[in-house]
Amino acid sequence: MEEGVGCARVTSEVTGEEPTSTTETVLSERKESAMTARVGQKAPDFTAPAYYRGGFGPVKLSDFAGKWVLLCFYPGDFTFV
């Protein structure tokens, strides 16, 4: 992913398994649960735009293979906690 400084909005994406456009509920539910993070299972890989030490560039989880990773989600910048 090239990181321009233009106005086009780049966004995050989950990589790896592609979601299918099936209308069968059971199948799509199973697909969804396969992509949901669970202890003991592979962490869903993703690529996302990131700020890192003064610069911009994509970060990809699988680039950290071989290392321990602490992945922290939080509600938002400039929030109080």
Partner: peptide, 23 residues
């Protein structure tokens, strides 16, 4: 928004721990 989720991922890419807190 995202909830406060914290995941410990081992060198094989396997999730070993999950903690999720409300905002």
């Amino acid at each position: 928004v995202e909830m406060r989720g914290r995941f410990i991922i081992d060198p094989d890419g396997i999730i070993q721990a999950i903690e999720v807190l409300a905002p």
